[in-house]
Amino acid sequence: MSTMTYLQAISDGLREEMRADERVLLMGEDVGVFGGAFKVTDGFIEEFGADRVMDTPLAESAIVGTAVGAAVVGLRPVCEMQFADFVACGFDQLVNVAGKMHYRQGLAVPITVRLPTGGGFSGGPFHSQNPEAWFMHAPGLKVVAPSTAEDAKGLLIAAIRDPNPVVFCEHKHLYRRVKGDVPAGAYETPFGARVAREGDDLAVIAYGAMVHTALEATANLDGATVRVLDLRSLVPLDEEAILETVRRCSKVVVVDEANATCAAGAQVAALIAEKGFEDLDGPVVRVSTPDVPIAFSPPLEQALLPSVDRIKEACRELLAY
């Protein structure tokens, strides 16, 4: 057990799997000599060589498409999109080729696609997005989004070992901001939710960076005890943990950093409306980013992303319902 940042934990998970399994290779733009735009793979090329830490042409469709080809002949590629936003250029390969392969032909595609997601530091409209819902809507893809260092490592290892294409959303704003104890060696974190803090009066359901925003917003909320459920996995979505949370708290705020329409939180709200209605004691309240591109200028960006204050306000209103 040692203390690591979220970013170090991702590196650690990659390193563990590359040491343990020679089929694992990393592919991406500037991941080799430069060590990645965020330095996740810093030092990897020295340990594993340029073949397994591959600096690729600047071509996201090709990164995903060639990873599919390598996977179906026995490798375990881990692709890095330099920014999650750029996966739009690889969308077709991921959704149409990788996602549908097993259903159509019984052929497994064990690839992991790492997406550095999220805003909060003036990345602007093309370096701040949270595109996880694009892939939740596409059958055959798993989607995970850790919030802690320990889960970042464990979910990544589980993603690499999974026989399916897994979209791994790692939040850029957590890279160096979040630290925690991380077990040594290889371990898998299951694709399911975890309770980040117990509480009975109200629940906030979130994932990724918003788990931390939710924890801060509800740490001291007029004496109310607030459960925070960290989804960790969006596909599969941990229905039982969500419904159990509704039964326990009866009041639920769902937080997304993604744009509101059809976001992961919209799916959670729909699930609660369908299967948890009888346990509710108030409307499901959503806090999310409006359907607007993420603006560059700090006051504009802060006006869009869910903040501690917005979550607090939503919780207070719901508690008073």
Binding site: G65, T66, V68, G69, V72, V73, L75, D92, Q93
Partner: peptide
């Protein structure tokens, strides 16, 4: 979506070479 499979074949060849 033609020619998506050109990339898949390229990836297979990449694995063979590696």
């Amino acid at each position: 979506m033609l020619p998506d499979m050109m990339l898949v074949a390229t990836g297979m060849a990449m694995a063979f070479k590696l």
